[in-house]
Amino acid sequence: MSDYDEHDDLDRALFALPLEEPPAGLRASILRATVFAGPAVASPLGRAETVGIGIALALAAWLAMICLTDRAFVAQIEGLTLALVNALADPRTLLWLGLGAGIALAASFVGTRGLRLPFAGR
């Protein structure tokens, strides 16, 4: 008969069980990958931000390349910019923009806490 016929004995045996010895060099490799790998933890940027900035920089570089090499593309951009400037110079556009901004401002004062959308659940 073993000593393990009661759970209390089993508990004692479990808690007396020594922890496994980690292999030599494990701590060093953990520290190399973390503490000595640089201040990754102190970086203010998360992975998503880093990826976002990378994409923005790549797009900027791509645009710069096109602007330098493709005259037709530059002309298109100039046309679009001119159209935008003309639209913004139109008093009717400014009136609509002002109206939209005014409504947004008024809505921000009212708040949305008391509002309930028609299809929203409880």
Partner: peptide, 25 residues
């Protein structure tokens, strides 16, 4: 560690390396 004292994380590694390895094993 978050304040920039990376060696503090080394202390945490020292404290929990064995237990974590035991769980993984």
């Amino acid at each position: 560690t978050l304040a920039g004292r990376a060696e503090a994380f080394g202390t945490l590694v020292e404290r929990y390396e064995r237990a974590v390895y035991h769980l993984c094993l």
